[in-house]
Amino acid sequence: MAEETILEFENHLFGIKGKKEGFLKIPKEFYTLTNERLKISKQGMMTETKSDIELFKIKDISVNQKMKDKMMDLGDIVIISSDASDPELTLKKIKGPHDVREKIRSAAKEARESAGVAYRQDV
Rank of each mutant, 00 (worst) to 15 (best):
A115Y: 10
V78Y: 02
G18E: 13
R101T: 03
E29I: 07
I61V: 14
I58D: 01
F14M: 12
F9S: 05
K66E: 14
M1T: 13
K109L: 14
M71N: 01
G15S: 07
L24D: 06
L33I: 08
T90E: 09
D86I: 07
A2E: 15
E110M: 11
R101C: 10
E54Y: 09
I58S: 03
V123D: 15
P97D: 01
G116V: 09
G18N: 13
E48G: 12
A84W: 05
F56S: 05
V100P: 00
V123N: 11
D76Y: 03
G96A: 07
T47Q: 11
E113R: 14
K66C: 09
G18Q: 10
I26E: 01
A111K: 10
E3P: 03
N11P: 06
I61R: 00
S62L: 07
S85P: 01
I40C: 04
K103G: 06
E113T: 10
I6N: 03
D52Q: 15
K39I: 15
D52G: 08
S82L: 13
G96S: 13
I6A: 00
E113I: 08
F14H: 12
T32H: 05
F23P: 03
G22E: 09
D86L: 11
A108D: 01
M71W: 09
E54N: 12
